[in-house]
Simulated assay, not measured.
Amino acid sequence: MKKSENIVVGISIGDLNGIGGEIVLKTFEDSRVLDFCTPVIFASAKAMNFFKSHFKSEINFNITNNLNQIVHGKVNVFNSWSEPVNIEFGNEDLKIGAYAIKSLQSATKALKHGDIDVLVTAPINKHNIQSKDFKFPGHTDYLAQQLEGESLMFMVTDDLRVGLLTDHVPVKDVVNHITEDLIINKINTVYNSLKVDFNIVRPRIAVLGINPHTGDNGVIGNEDDTVLRPTLKKLKEEGKLVYGPYAADSFFGSNNYKSFDAVVASYHDQGLIPFKTLSFGQGVNFTAGLNKVRTSPDHGTAYEIAGKGVADESSFKEAVFTAIHIFRNRNEYEELTANPLKKSSKKI
């Protein structure tokens, strides 16, 4: 297993007109972060030096065209393109969206090849990244295609983890997507992630209902009774500690979530509104279920404050440390699985 200070954290720069460049610089201006990882920013020397000058950063980059030449203890910049880019903070620009994708594709290639250990993605604009060559709703869907495994949007903090049965799906289509197979796959992904990525031996998972009041015995829809409850029963019979469905409207306000290691919501806003209300600025978006580790902050491009020097880097910094933590937990799990006696020797 790698020592923590040697973990190579790849960073896709996101939308250059947003706050990505600023929060990346602010994160690594704290030199103590370099004691835990070696960052590699996938952008260009010209773009990063523009950010450095604009935000008056004192970071000295190691610029490279070769990932074999990254320097530990330095903030590395890998040239994913060489031409100058016109950066205009706060503007939505299709050309800038194309560079966000260049960065993401370059970083993903490095992740697949093992040149970096984990990937942390700065925010993109889901509209200006669309093109004839890139037709994904966002990072998660693209990475699910590129990497092995069953992807799941998993929003995490130290004391709250929220997974989703459906993520970027229109509300009118949610019910049609929620099938027995989907429920089993998503909850198994959450369960395995809690064990492998978060070192929780016997995970307890709460599942929120599909309809208000979980359908009120069919008065407000019958999907909770016909699809969700029977599927949860099957998972319980396998020995998994899965509970619910719970009425979503009171679940978080009553602090019920504190009794569980994770909560699985039926759709995007049902899970993310309470998550961001309780933890905004500290939350991390983790793509669970893939064979590589990817995290991101829990916010977007924030065009309205881009370039002003007032962006809060807390969530991005948390994303970096969460990626490191999960990478180490996965390595430890693999070691213990390969050598189960090592676990018992630790307890002596």
Rank of each mutant, 00 (worst) to 15 (best):
M1L: 13
V8C: 03
I11C: 06
L16R: 06
G21T: 08
V33M: 14
C37I: 02
P39R: 03
A43I: 02
A47F: 08
A47Q: 02
M48C: 03
N49D: 15
N68V: 02
I70T: 00
I70W: 01
N76E: 06
V77R: 02
N79T: 01
S82M: 13
N86M: 08
N86G: 06
I87Q: 09
G90A: 11
G90F: 12
D93G: 04
G97W: 12
G97P: 11
G97D: 10
A98L: 10
Y99K: 11
T108A: 08
K109Q: 11
A110H: 08
A122I: 04
I124A: 07
I129E: 11
Q130D: 03
D133G: 01
T140M: 14
T140G: 11
Y142W: 10
A144D: 03
S151R: 08
L152Y: 06
V156D: 10
R161H: 02
V169C: 12
P170H: 00
V171Q: 10
H177C: 15
K186A: 05
K186T: 07
T189D: 09
L194W: 10
L194R: 02
V201H: 13
P212Y: 05
G218E: 05
I220K: 12
L228Y: 01
K233W: 05
K234F: 03
L235T: 00
E237M: 08
E238G: 04
G239N: 01
G239Q: 03
K240V: 00
A248F: 09
F251P: 00
Y257S: 02
Y257W: 06
K258P: 07
A265R: 05
Y267A: 06
D269L: 10
G271Q: 01
I273E: 14
P297G: 07
I305W: 13
I305T: 09
K308R: 10
E313D: 12
K317T: 12
K317G: 01
F321Y: 04
H325G: 00
F327E: 06
R328Q: 15
P340I: 05
I348C: 02
